[in-house]
Nucleic acid binder design. Sequence first.
DNA 1: ATGAAAGCGCTAACAG
DNA 2: CTGTTAGCGCTTTCAT
Lengths: 360, 360
Amino acid sequence: MTSLLILWYTPVNDYVIVYGRRGTIATIRDVAERAEVSVATVSHVINETRPVSDELRLRVLAAMQALDYQPNALARGLRRRRTSTLGLIIPDTNNPYFAEVARGIEQAAFERDYSVILCHSDYSPERELQYVDVLRAERAAGVIWIPATECCEAAERLVEYGMPLVILDRHAPDVQCPSVVADNFRGGYFATQHLIQLGHRRIGCIARPVGLSHSQERILGYQAALSDYGLPVDEILIAKGGFRLEDGRRVTFQLLDLVPPPTAIFAYNDIMAIGALRAAHERGLCVPDDFSIVGFDDIPQAAFTCPALTTVSQPKLDMGRRGAKLLLDLIDGTGPPVEGDVPLEVRLVVRESTGQAPQQ
Amino acid sequence: MTSLLILWYTPVNDYVIVYGRRGTIATIRDVAERAEVSVATVSHVINETRPVSDELRLRVLAAMQALDYQPNALARGLRRRRTSTLGLIIPDTNNPYFAEVARGIEQAAFERDYSVILCHSDYSPERELQYVDVLRAERAAGVIWIPATECCEAAERLVEYGMPLVILDRHAPDVQCPSVVADNFRGGYFATQHLIQLGHRRIGCIARPVGLSHSQERILGYQAALSDYGLPVDEILIAKGGFRLEDGRRVTFQLLDLVPPPTAIFAYNDIMAIGALRAAHERGLCVPDDFSIVGFDDIPQAAFTCPALTTVSQPKLDMGRRGAKLLLDLIDGTGPPVEGDVPLEVRLVVRESTGQAPQQ
DNA sequence: ATGAAAGCGCTAACAG
DNA sequence: CTGTTAGCGCTTTCAT
């Protein structure tokens, strides 16, 4: 039952809107005149691009202050033929996973005085292409792309145009550019290893219906762990999940109906894990005592739903930061780090059962 | 227990990075030469700003196509003295509430060919001010600001600079600009009314520790509903919550310890509601049969945690869209709508108990 | 209906 | 150490 209720508010008519009246900012010439120097000097003071005597510098600084001067980034970009703008093409910041990545990107960009243009691809390749044009028009210095589908056309175009590009979160082997991803293979491996070490011998797995590199690698890790510990890799234990909680629940029932049923499940992401959790509860299984579940991604929903749920945590914020830094290095010509690359760690988060979880 | 595990990946050294080599885009002059027309004609074809004969238009269009021409937004902005860029100052897209608002903003902006610069204030007034300067430098056409604290300095500066500004989600009565917010008062009112109609007579309330307008209004709505239905407004039933789940849980215990205890709770947001839910469960209360809880915001965590949790839902996406549209109207001089404003609805979402919730 | 040309505000030679 | 000046790519008068 959903009853429609309430309403809105905008007290806009109470004001005299003065927008645009005063919108003019002092130019470099204004500053130069006030400081009684040439515009070149002002420019060089701002950019520290050639020595300026203390006297003049002080005059310039004072004038800038007095006029509340703010350099015009457009003029600067036009002249310099490069901007301090990054494009971020992301499926949807509404997804908490991407939201955290985006945050990391914006953080790192801000630290290096870059601003980021937010482009929601909305999981649409077409939209991605539209945004490629936008970013080209804005002369973005580089682009960070989080693929939404298997389609890499946007990235290919970017590379074709010679725009610095870094791919995040997923592989796109066909695109000639660096990518930053966590080691999903080992994530899957260690998740499974964890279950094995808990004593489980028959471990089910919820895979993604269509394979994007990162989720497939998780499954490969799962299989590798089984092999390494001498357990059979039984295809029947690998269920094709979906994208919604309900899919996870559904396929978990399928797995539990097997004879013999698995005693544990590794899910390719946390949504599936939560679905599995529900299914297990409905079957009267006590998690994690009777039945163990390990998820992947460590999204807040998982922690909320089951504080004791074990999951593989990706350093999403850090991934974003790394991606942005790598991109900025590429732009600056500092080039990608050839070695000494610090690991992008993936953690297995085994939360203690507090006994306070609502599902107890 | 948390064991550190895995690692990173960047196949960057496999490629010859060609970035920046080819980065040149055709200019309007290139197009003009190829089409054998003047640059003025090209410009007018692009902007449809004066009639151009079909013949020339076709030639221009063909040349643009052939050269893969993309107008330089910087040059255009410089010349036109205005950009198609919006600034979005937001506390943190990592918060699912803000993420959805951001998404709405970006959507509406995209539809009107504006791009948005993402600025995380990180709940810091100082950071907000830094971003004001960035946006001024970028000559953003306007700014949408979601306040992070009670501090309105950033907004005041923006208004002072004459930059079009719209405030979202909260009131800032001192700032002379329009704002778009849901009617939090009535949200609180109807939430409480709902509980009263369920038969509750002693209804507790979890309020925000420091008052931002929106949460305070929710509480006022709660009090008004009690009054209207002839119930006493007892200050002792209003507990000061916090920002974390645990705070909600803690103060719920306080409320439950009252004699007599309330039989229901209205929480100023969903996080507090979830905390209350946990506390209730720990006390052995069956929600919603023994004890009813209504939250506010309708964040995904709430739905995950308790599919049957009742909450007041704000149209976050729509709020973002409205805010962006309002801002764009202001920028275009279309002005704010004087009347006929369509309500920004807030819904009371009463979810059916499915019997499948993990906490059952 | 079309073109020539003057800047927008800034940076970076170049000249002193 | 400082100033003059020629553009960056585009829009927009002002002529034709």
